[in-house]
Simulated assay, not measured.
Amino acid sequence: MLQYALPIQVDTIDLLTVNKVVKGRLDLMVLRHMACQLQLALLTTSQQVDMTKSPMVYELTERQSCLHRIVFYRSQVLHEQETLSFVGFVSGRQTGSDDILNEELSQADRHMLAKLTHIPGLLAYSSMELRPGRWYNLVMMQTLDVKANLKGIDMHQHAAYHLAPRAYDWIRIHSGIFPGGLAKNAPQLLKSKHYAFHHQTNNFQMHEIMY
């Protein structure tokens, strides 16, 4: 499932006072595993289908029946040994089930996947539910400038400002690079942000780390 990075608009943004554990290094281990699976899917799929078609969806089942979905947009660039950029989203869903909200998120997910096709520099997107309610998402791009185009999509703004604050207790966003490309699989973090939502006050707190 796609995760949405922008929190709701509020009058004040407080520094995170309770849980400042951003877990960047731990999250990076999972994101690196996802990058490895992405590369494996890239190599396997390229031998079976025409990878010039976009988007190309690939699904695999991880351990403990975790579904890992990978969408290739410009897979040919992923073969190159040049530095690539990435954004990793990690989120914790609120406890309890809201069927209406779940359906809204699913609809936003489907619409976003179609619109991402038109963003230059976007290479691939993968998502994996490591355990119930704990989503990891890896966005591969040529440069981090692509993030501005992602945020400009109307469906992204709707999901970020209206759906995510209702659906998640917290979101961690990691930005970084893959020196030497995907094949080397040695990601480096540049920046991490941790958002903790306060649903009763319609506010949130944020803690940021620069590496």
Rank of each mutant, 00 (worst) to 15 (best):
Y125E: 02
M128V: 14
G96I: 06
H118P: 02
G181Y: 09
P7Q: 04
L26I: 10
A108D: 04
Y73W: 03
Y168F: 15
S65V: 09
F204L: 15
N202C: 11
Q64C: 08
E104I: 03
T61C: 12
S126L: 03
A148C: 06
Q3M: 05
G92P: 03
M155D: 15
G92Y: 03
I173T: 15
M112R: 10
M51W: 02
S91M: 06
N202G: 01
D27L: 10
T143C: 13
Y195S: 01
K191Q: 09
R32V: 01
M155H: 02
L15W: 02
L144F: 12
E80T: 14
C36A: 15
S46D: 03
Q47P: 03
S54C: 03
A35M: 05
H79C: 10
G176S: 09
Q142F: 04
H162A: 07
D14T: 07
Q188A: 04
F204I: 03
S127A: 15
E59A: 10
F86C: 07
L2Q: 02
E59R: 11
K147A: 14
M112P: 02
Q76S: 14
L113C: 04
P132Y: 03
K193S: 08
S97D: 02
Q107L: 01
L113H: 11
S75P: 12
L116R: 11
E62Q: 12
D145F: 07
E62L: 10
A114P: 08
Q39W: 07
M51P: 12
L105A: 05
P7G: 07
T201D: 07
K193G: 06
L38H: 10
T117W: 09
Q142K: 15
Y211V: 00
H199Q: 05
L144R: 13
L28K: 06
M155L: 08
S85R: 01
Y211K: 06
A148P: 04
H174R: 05
P7Y: 06
H79N: 13
H156R: 12
R166L: 14
R131L: 01
E59C: 06
Q188C: 09
V30M: 12
K151C: 12
Q142M: 12
G180I: 02
E62P: 00
F89W: 03
L123V: 01
I13P: 03
D169E: 15
E80S: 07
A41E: 00
